[in-house]
Write a protein that binds this DNA or RNA. Sequence first.
DNA 1: TCTATTTTGTGAACATTTCATAAAAAATAT
DNA 2: ATATTTTTTATGAAATGTTCACAAAATAGA
Lengths: 217, 217
Amino acid sequence: MAHRILIVDDEDDIREFIGYNLRHEGYDVYTAENGAEALEIIGSVRPHLVLLDMMMPIMDGRQTCEKIRQIPELKDTMIVFLSAVQEEQCQLDSYQAGADDYITKPVSMRVLCSRVNAIMKRLKPVENLPLNIDFDRRVVTTPQGDIPLPRKEFEILQLLLSEPGKVFTREEIFTQIWGGDVVVGDRTLDVHIRRLRRKLGDEAIVTHKGIGFKILL
Amino acid sequence: MAHRILIVDDEDDIREFIGYNLRHEGYDVYTAENGAEALEIIGSVRPHLVLLDMMMPIMDGRQTCEKIRQIPELKDTMIVFLSAVQEEQCQLDSYQAGADDYITKPVSMRVLCSRVNAIMKRLKPVENLPLNIDFDRRVVTTPQGDIPLPRKEFEILQLLLSEPGKVFTREEIFTQIWGGDVVVGDRTLDVHIRRLRRKLGDEAIVTHKGIGFKILL
DNA sequence: TCTATTTTGTGAACATTTCATAAAAAATAT
DNA sequence: ATATTTTTTATGAAATGTTCACAAAATAGA
């Protein structure tokens, strides 16, 4: 799943142009015409990055930024200003208001994209399932907290989670986890599934009789 | 404990001036005259941010950046270019080389500081770790006093600490510390971990059976 | 519908792998 | 030469992985 970007600018052309290019880079792009509209949709969109034009009617970039920064759930949202104003004071004010970056116009699209990419690469990959695997820390992250898993359980969950919703046949699981040559009893998998369910909740993994298992979407 | 910044610039005045101001902002500042020197000390300093001048003798900013990016333990290090070159291509190349930001000179000190602060506020706070490492003196500082660490122990701790919370596989540790070709017994690592635990307390390092170890966040 | 058959769920026992630890030997540094 | 550091080895402990026996549930066949 892609990172979400909200472009806030009162000029249609610019929104479209930047939007087109950022979509091309693989982002989910949302747009707003002004600060007020941005604040309306930002709660539901929950963008990872907001590209905020400085000069806007009704509510300017700085005010919008301050409003966004007052929303605790959005504290990790990156806010980048786009501004034609080179003045030092304007930049300082923007950072004061909680900006993460300040880009002076005019700027080439390629540079803008590079910059956005540079910011995005530092963000955590997007999560959407209630269940998520942290490969580095080797734990499953859930709303309730982190659960460490032994190797086999981790591998099985990792497989199921590689395509959430897809039913993996028992055979598929055996060859993927144990390898084609290793032979283990046919109840072994059930025991591992059982232990996973103990830790993740019974609903997390669904059985398809005669076929295999899948992780709930 | 403060975030560490490494300033790399061949002009003494600039290093001093920027360094003075960033220290004033509360950072631990280290300096290097050129890319080669930067690469020498970067392993022991392990800065959170590198301010890299573009134009330098011997090794320019871009080359230095690429070298740094080849060091796995430093992948979370932010690299910011300082350059008098406004050319688009130069910026794009820098991002290509792994830069996180590109600041064109001249830039006012206050803007530079704001920008550095904006970057730093997104990093994990450093003071959360129960351990404080003095990379220069190769000791662990605790309320009870300093604990010097022998080379192997220090290197292992340094690796684990490069990404606190991440589980490093035994293999990963072996290749990083001993190198891919050296072969040592499989209990050796455990002994070093044991000695580290003796010195740092048992809770500091967590075992993931079948996988490896991680340092507690 | 009722029963037979297949498939899955489950806990406990068992087997295996992996790790912790001390002690001692080997290698390095001082 | 002596102290320090690193590696090896042996052993017990613990976590993990597997099997098994049987229960429960779903499916198929009459």
